[in-house]
Design a protein around this nucleic acid. Structure first.
Lengths: 334, 334
DNA sequence: CTGAAAGCGCTTACAG
DNA sequence: CTGAAAGCGCTTACAG
C-alpha cells in the first residue's frame, strides 16, 4: 500500500517547480524548454507518477466522466447501445458511469442525484417515465448537458436521438395486417415510457387507417413478463375475446415472453397466430423457428449520434436543442 | 448555468460554521444540537445543496466508485453480470465505472491506467489475457483492491470468483460423448483467457478419459466469429478431416456462430452433428430448434460474490486472497 | 522560459 | 456543543 507519488514529488525529483510539472503533463498551455521537459518526464517515469484526476477536477470544475442512465441492462438492444457508447466515449477520453433504473422512478431519481454529486460532465439518459422533468431541468441549469437517447421527456429542451417510434409501431402493425391479420393485440411494457407510448400510437394509427377496431383491452401493458403472473394477461384476454390472429410486441423481452407463453399453451405461432417482434434484431433472432418478423432500430447509430451531440455540448456548443429521429426497419427473414 | 451552492453557502445561510455543516451532512461523527441541525437542513433544502463528491474524495482519499473491466459487453452472460454488479453496488452506495477491453490487451492496459487515475475504490476485473500481471500488482500495491471475476491471472494474489471452467469443459464434452459422438471438435475464442484455456483443458480431459484421440487441429480458436472469415476455420477443418460428429462451443457468441454456419452449409444440427453450447443460458436459448444442450454458469451468483468480496476488502479486510469456484450446470431441454 | 502562491470544496484534528 | 484553520493534489493567474 505504497503511497502514490504526487506532482510535488515529481517536481522535487526533477528540481523544478510544481507549475512546470503541470505544464509538462498537460502539454501546455505554456512552453517548457526541451531540457526541463525531459527531466520532468524522467522523474514521472521513475516514480510511476499518474496525475490525480480528482484533484484536477476539483480545480478545473470539469470531469472526464459521462453518465449513462438506462432502464435495463438485460435487453440486448441496450447492450449494443452501451457497447457503442463506451466505445465512442473512450475515443474522446471519457469514462462511462453506468446505472440502471430498472424502469423504477424512485431509483432513477436517486441515480440522477448521485450522478450530479459525482459531477459527471454530461448525461445520456433514457427516461423510464416523464416524472423527473424538474430534476432534469435542474441538472441542465447546473450546467450538465443532457442528451436523451431512445426515449425522451417531452418539454425538456435537450438534444434527443431516438427512433421514430410511431412509425416503428405502424410498420410492425401494418406488416401483420398485410399478412391478413385482423384481430391484432399489442403487448407493451409501459404506460409512460415515450418509446412505448409512441409505438402504441403507431399501432393505433395503422389499425385505424385499415378500418380495424381497437378496443382499449387490446393494448396489454405487462410490466414484468418474467414475473409470476407473466403473460397471463394475454390469456385472460383471449379467454374473453378469443385468440387474436396477430400480436405486436413492443420490446424484446416481451417478444420472447409472448413466444414462450404461446408455445407453453400449445398455440402454433405463424399458423394460429402471427407474431411480430421488436425493436431490435440480435444475432440469435435468426435462429428462431418459425422465422420471426421484426422491426429493427439501429442502436449503434443512435449511440454514436448521442455521444456526438454530447461532445459538441461539452465543447461549448449552445445552439438550440436538436432532435434526430432514426428510421426503423422492417426485417422479414425467410 | 447557475453556480452550484457550496457548503460555505449553506453555513452562511444557516449562520453556523462550515464544520458544523459537514457534521450534519455526514451525520457525525460529532454530535450536533437538534436546533442547529434543523437550521442546517433547512438551508440545505432552501439552496438545493448537494455535497460535492469530488471535493470530499480529495480530502478523504476515498471514492464511491468501483470499476468493472470486462472483455465484451455484447455477450448476454456479461450483461447479466453487469446488471447484478450494478445492483449490488447500488445497495452499497457505490457507482459503477464500466469499460470493455474488447479482448484487446493494449486497450485493457489503458483502461487500468485511466481507472487508477480516476481513483476507483476497487476493481472487478475479467482479464482477457495474463499479460498485465505487473500493472495489476501495481494497482494492488497502490491500495486498490482487485477481485477477479469469471477469469483470473494466475499468480496475482487477489480474490477470485469464477466457474470451475475445467469441470464445465469436461461436462460439455462428456455430454457429447454420452450422445455417441466420437469425433468432437472444440471451438474456442482465445488462447490466453483463463476461462477459455480451462474449458479446453476440460475438453482434453474428457476426451482422454474416454480414450478418444485429440489432435491439436481439433481445437479451433476463432477470435472473431462475426468477422468476414468467421467460421471458415470450421469448414477448412472438415474439408480435410471430415465433418465432426460433435462440436463443443466455448462461449455464447461462438455457439451462435457455429449454429448459423452449419445451417448456412445445410448441415443438419442434432442429426449430422451434435452441438453443445456454453456457457450461459439466456431466455431466448429455449426458443432454438432443435433444443440446444448447454452448460450454464450462474453469472448473478458470481457477480454477487465478487461484489461481496470487494466490499469486505474496502471495509479493511486484509485476510489472504480467497478463491471461489462455482459449479457449472448441464442443461438439456426436451 | 520559470517559480511562488491562491484556491477548487470538502474533512478533521485542534482548541475552546 | 461549536468554530477557525490546515491541507487533500492539482491548475492557473500573477510576477519576473
Amino acid at each position: 500500500m505504497a503511497k502514490r507519488p504526487t506532482r510535488d514529488d515529481v517536481a522535487r525529483l526533477a528540481g523544478v517547480s510544481a507549475a512546470t510539472v503541470s505544464y509538462v503533463i498537460n502539454d501546455g498551455p505554456r512552453p517548457v524548454s526541451e531540457e526541463t521537459r525531459a527531466r520532468v518526464l524522467d522523474a514521472v517515469e521513475q516514480l510511476g507518477y499518474r496525475p490525480h484526476a480528482i484533484a484536477r477536477s476539483l480545480k478545473t470544475g470539469r470531469t472526464r466522466t459521462v453518465g449513462l442512465l438506462i432502464p435495463t441492462l438485460l435487453s440486448p438492444g441496450f447492450a449494443y447501445l452501451i457497447n457503442e457508447v463506451e466505445d465512442c466515449l473512450a475515443d474522446h477520453d471519457y469514462a462511462l458511469v453506468l446505472a440502471s433504473s430498472h424502469e423504477d422512478g424512485d431509483r432513477e431519481s436517486r441515480v440522477l442525484d448521485v450522478m450530479l454529486s459525482q459531477s459527471i460532465a454530461g448525461l445520456l439518459y433514457t427516461p423510464s417515465f416523464p416524472g423527473l422533468r424538474d430534476q432534469v431541468l435542474r441538472l441542465i441549469s447546473d450546467g450538465v448537458p443532457v442528451v436523451f437517447v431512445d426515449r425522451h421527456i417531452p418539454g425538456v429542451p435537450a438534444d434527443t436521438v431516438m427512433t421514430d417510434n410511431v412509425k416503428a409501431g405502424r410498420q410492425a402493425t401494418e406488416h401483420l395486417i398485410q399478412q391478413g391479420c385482423r384481430h391484432i393485440v399489442c403487448v407493451s411494457f409501459s404506460h409512460e415510457a415515450s418509446a412505448a407510448v409512441d409505438r402504441v400510437e403507431g399501432y393505433r394509427q395503422a389499425m385505424r387507417q385499415h378500418g380495424l377496431p381497437v378496443d382499449e383491452k387490446m393494448i396489454l401493458v405487462i410490466p414484468d413478463p418474467a414475473g409470476e403472473t407473466g403473460m397471463s394477461a394475454l390469456f385472460e384476454y383471449s379467454d374473453t375475446c378469443g385468440l387474436p390472429d396477430g400480436i405486436m410486441c413492443n420490446n424484446q423481452t416481451h417478444t420472447i415472453g409472448v413466444l414462450k407463453a404461446l408455445r407453453a399453451r400449445g398455440v402454433r405461432v405463424g399458423d394460429q397466430v402471427a407474431v411480430i417482434g421488436g425493436f431490435f434484431v440480435s444475432p440469435w433472432d435468426t435462429l428462431i423457428e418459425p422465422p420471426l418478423p421484426l422491426v429493427n432500430q439501429d442502436m449503434q447509430c443512435m449511440a454514436r449520434k448521442a455521444v456526438e451531440f454530447l461532445m459538441q455540448r461539452l465543447g461549448g456548443d449552445d445552439s438550440p436543442p436538436r432532435v434526430v429521429l432514426l428510421d426503423p426497419e422492417l426485417i422479414v427473414m425467410s
